[in-house]
Design a protein around this nucleic acid. Structure first.
Length: 543
RNA sequence: GCGCCUGUAGCUCAGCAGGACAGAGCAACUGACUUCUAAUCAGUGGGUCGGGGGUUCGAAUCCUCCCAGGCGCGCCA
């Protein structure tokens, strides 16, 4: 359906132009199936009364085939009511080629990289990482269905102080296991997993580091071993959560392969670095940041920012048209400086967008769960996945806008499991499958020459319209980079299907009616599949 | 002190590029399982959209001030 096209044509015939024809599904049935306020937008531009414009457009649009009625109402809304035949045609198209009907090429093959999670490999993933994972993965899926070529990347902070501290913590535990006295590093990681890694290391390396200090080869070994293990754990946890990446970029590799050096050289040549007080600074203030930033400290070591500059430089070199960084909102202060980098490198800052995912407050039975990474007391993503389930957890994350603070109560998420929204949607899918199983048992073969005209019920028209409006939601979600809109749509669709299921039978009716209803069920199933797969939520054949 | 995010029903949250009478789920209360799965359905009640100004034909949405909560403001990562 291209209702928007008809309206745009009418706008052009008025000799006007509008950046975007807004379409909305009216809340009230009397306002038709679809509505546009475009005449009111045009009123200002054309200096004419909105209702007059609306009337003129309506009379043009009435000639178009999809519409049963085109009415002007209120201050200048144009309300459309579809012909049944238009709905049937749309349903038929949807069944004929679901992917073509449900996906839209909005990206035109542009290359987009979505970087998300990127947690320090110094401890297990916590629930906040899970939110980033759910959002990043869903956004990637969404864009991939919108004609973007998407790469999902995890950036590994395996250089610098934090991983060194991890190695040192493992080192201390290793010595303890060998019964050798060793001071535990002041800011070391005290979680039990560190002891576990030390035990594994002992199994592999034996006691050959018994008398070593934490330096040179020993330090390197402990760090590499620890990072390797932590990465393994994180990959496992993400796998258990149902999130996969296309690529893992090591920060250390950026140094080892000389990318940091080359990038800094380039900035230096452009005059964007300067020395002061023994350190090397980036002129961030010239690109909108409020302070200049150190890239090489006076002790000669690089800041985290140095490799981050190189990382983004490298991303752009790899040919991405757009970069999306999904960050925890606690890093928001970092946005201006990384945007400054993009501009300093000679690119429009829109090339990078940073999606800030707000903090998750973890509750158990209404009480906040204290978390501290240092002490090692925190609830991990793995624990929540096991206790609550990946589908429920993802669905909760994706039922909120990414920038809204989120309270996640483990008890509630579990307790409500039987009435959890995710099951509501999945159950609709399972019920449809059940119908098809039953149909096969009865020897009813779906498909073939179906007379969709048998679908005369209001509930059926409502369902078909909802299906045909999927692209409207989809385009909005892509444009706004908001996967949670998909979640809400799916709940609404399931909310139409369940009552329909309860009041209308599918099987055992007049054969042509049964076939038509099976076709409708098939279409609902396809859309549920499409939507849930964007969210990364599984599709149960039965429940 | 400065900056960013948030404030909508008892609770958790939507509200799509400013549009028509503000929505959903949960919780509460009434009802519906010999019929394709009751993880469902039908119904009832529930709101000064934090507050004040402003822009507009029209504001939960944009601007501004104030209040409340969260998060940031390192030669840490």
């Amino acid at each position: 359906m291209d209702i928007r096209g008809y309206i745009e044509r009418a706008v052009r015939e008025l000799g006007a132009e509008v950046p975007f024809v807004e379409l909305e599904v009216p809340r009230v049935a009397e306002h038709g199936d679809l509505s546009t306020p475009v005449a009111m937008v045009l009123a200002g531009r054309l200096r004419r009364p909105p209702r007059e414009i609306a009337e003129e457009m309506a009379s043009m649009l009435r000639a178009e085939s999809p519409f049963e009625r085109v009415d002007v109402a209120g201050p200048g809304f144009i309300n459309f009511t579809f012909r049944r035949g238009f709905l049937y045609e749309g349903l038929r198209n949807l069944l004929g080629d679901p992917a073509r009907c449900l996906r839209r090429d909005l990206g035109g093959g542009q290359k987009v990289q979505v970087e998300f999670v990127s947690a320090n490999p110094t401890g297990p993933l916590h629930l906040g990482h899970g939110r980033g994972a759910a959002v990043g993965a869903a956004l990637s899926n969404l864009l991939a269905r919108a004609g973007y070529e998407v790469e999902r990347e995890f950036y590994i902070n395996d250089a610098g102080r934090q991983v060194r501290l991890l190695g040192e913590s493992i080192f201390a535990r290793y010595k303890e296991l060998l019964g050798v006295a060793c001071r535990f590093p002041e800011e070391g990681y005290r979680g039990g997993y560190v002891v576990e890694i030390a035990r594994q290391l002992l199994g592999e390396a034996g006691d050959r580091f018994r008398d070593a200090g934490f330096e040179g080869e020993a330090a390197e070994y402990f760090v590499r071993f620890g990072v390797g293990r932590m990465l393994g754990v994180m990959k496992e946890d993400l796998g258990g959560f149902g999130v996969e990446f296309d690529r893992w970029q090591s920060e250390k590799a950026l140094y080892d392969e000389g990318l940091v050096r080359r990038c800094l050289d380039e900035l230096r040549e452009k005059g964007m670095l300067y020395e002061r007080e023994g350190a090397l600074w980036f002129r961030a203030t010239e690109f909108g940041d409020d302070k200049d930033r150190v890239v090489i400290k006076s002790d000669g070591s690089h800041t985290y920012f140095a490799s981050d500059i190189a990382y983004h430089w490298y991303k752009i070199q790899r040919g991405f048209d757009e970069l999306i960084d999904v960050w925890g909102a606690d890093h928001h202060g970092y946005v201006p400086r990384i945007k400054a980098v993009i501009r300093a490198l000679g690119h429009p800052e829109e090339r990078l967008s940073v999606l800030l995912v707000q903090i998750v407050t973890l509750l158990r039975g209404g009480k906040p769960v204290q978390m501290s990474k240092r002490s090692g007391e925190f609830v991990t993503l793995r624990e929540v996945t096991e206790e609550v389930g990946a589908d429920t957890t993802k669905f909760i994350f994706l039922t909120r806008s990414h920038d809204s603070h989120l309270e996640f109560d483990i008890e509630t998420a579990k307790k409500e499991s039987s009435e959890n929204p995710v099951y509501y949607v999945q159950y609709a899918y399972a019920r449809i499958n059940s119908i098809f199983r039953k149909a096969r048992q009865q020897g009813v073969e779906p498909g073939g020459a179906v007379d969709l005209g048998c679908l005369k019920e209001e509930a059926e028209a409502g369902l078909i319209k909802k299906l045909l409006f999927y692209p409207l939601m989809f385009e909005g979600a892509v444009r706004a980079r908001e996967p949670h809109r998909v979640t809400f749509y799916l709940q609404e669709l399931a909310g139409l299907f369940h009552p329909y299921y309860n009041t209308h039978r599918v099987l055992g009716l007049d054969p042509s009616l049964t076939l038509a209803r099976l076709a409708l069920c098939e279409a609902v199933k396809r859309v549920l599949e499409e939507g849930l797969s964007i969210l990364g939520v599984t599709l149960p054949e039965r429940m």
